[in-house]
């Protein structure tokens, strides 16, 4: 019984939220890894692209709420998501046309592309703050919980319940659907195979008549769509904070490198490893241990490895460990 309570507690505060967070990170990391694989640079503007897509979704959500459109009990944001995706795709193609294409044609050093992407990141950050402002925005409506803590306590007959938020389930379902679609696209379609071929060897792809501009455009479209979905889901699950998207870059990059850059499967693996580590390391295990230990005993401290203030230190430690032990990542990615 006590063990079950400990498990329920763990599931409620670690497993469920970390899974949702992992799915959000995975969608972001997939975009970064695709851009790594196709355009061959670290795209620092990806976090702001997530923010931009989320912002467009929020604006559309507000518009729909105003107009009385609703798909209750589901959040209206789900209906607005395609608009956010479209806006992010438009923005990504525009930045590629105005900024990145020039450097690609010049075959610039990837580090130059990375610097330019930092420039894009700040321009995007400025645009976002001008449009929606720097403050937090909450836009979730619809049912809040699928299973709330009280019901689950009763159902399981335990002291601890497992609450599952609707946004968490939506995150997982959408992420699963999007990832399946992406892998189907990459493995089965002509354009998807062309993308993999291009990522493998640019020159040989050219010899085979694969158009680089087309591959690059598809890459931006996919990455931006993933970013918008990731950003919207993240904002829906927590709240939308414009400044958070600069900080989320670190876990995303850590996940990408951990998985092996240019490797979609690796990105997903990496994202979940980062998410679970982050939540576990910053969770206070005191109560869990109290259930597991002898009756009436509880550990003295919080039994928390790191305070939540340092949660991104977890990503950093993972990053450092990967660079030291296996810089190619779990699935051998492109190193130099």
């Amino acid at each position: 019984m006590e063990i079950l309570n400990a498990l329920a507690l763990f599931a409620n505060f670690v497993f469920v939220p970390a899974t949702a967070y992992g799915a959000q990170l995975a969608l972001g990391a997939l975009g970064v890894t695709l851009i790594f694989g196709i355009l061959r640079f670290a795209n620092f503007s990806h976090g702001e692209m997530m923010s931009f897509g989320a912002m467009a979704s929020i604006l559309a959500t507000w518009g729909m709420q105003e107009a009385g459109v609703s798909i209750a009990p589901f959040p209206t944001a789900l209906l607005a998501l395609p608009i956010g995706v479209a806006a992010a795709i438009g923005m990504a193609l525009a930045t590629d046309r105005m900024v990145f294409r020039f450097y690609r044609k010049q075959r610039s050093n990837p580090i130059v592309m990375a610097i330019v992407s930092v420039g894009v990141m700040f321009v995007l950050a400025g645009i976002i703050r001008l449009i929606i402002g720097p403050d937090d925005q909450s836009f979730a409506d619809g049912e809040r919980f699928i299973i709330n803590a009280r019901d689950s306590r009763a159902a399981l007959g335990l002291d601890e319940g497992i609450a599952i938020k609707q946004t968490q389930v939506i995150t997982l379902v959408v992420a699963l659907a999007v990832m399946s679609a992406l892998f189907w696209f990459l493995q089965k379609t002509r354009s998807g195979k062309a993308m993999r071929a291009y990522s493998d060897d640019e020159d040989l792809a050219l010899l085979s008549g694969i158009s680089p501009e087309r591959v690059v455009a598809i890459c931006w479209i996919i990455a931006a769509a993933l970013a918008a979905i990731a950003g919207t889901l993240y904002g829906l699950d927590k709240t939308y904070k414009p400044f958070i998207f600069m900080q989320i870059l670190l876990p995303i990059f850590a996940a990408t490198i951990l998985g092996g850059i240019g490797q979609p499967v690796g990105a997903i693996l990496g994202a979940f490893i980062v998410a679970y580590s982050e939540v576990m390391v910053t969770y206070a295990f005191r109560k869990v241990l109290a259930y597991l230990g002898p009756e009436g005993w509880a550990p003295e401290g919080l039994v928390q490895l790191l305070s939540t203030d340092y949660k991104f230190a977890v990503s950093f430690i993972i990053l450092v460990a990967v660079l030291l032990i296996r810089p190619t990542g779990i699935i051998r990615g492109k190193v130099i």
């Binding site: 002509r190 195979k193 062309a194 993999r196 071929a197 990522s199 493998d200 060897d201 020159d203 040989l204 792809a205 010899l207 085979s208 008549g209 694969i210």
Partner: peptide, 21 residues
């Protein structure tokens, strides 16, 4: 080409498909 003349991470069949892209 002399070097790097196959897509190493693609299967043989996919290599042929890309040849006929």
């Amino acid at each position: 080409p002399q070097n790097r003349n196959v897509f190493v991470s693609l299967s043989v069949e996919e290599n042929l498909e890309m040849g006929g892209f």
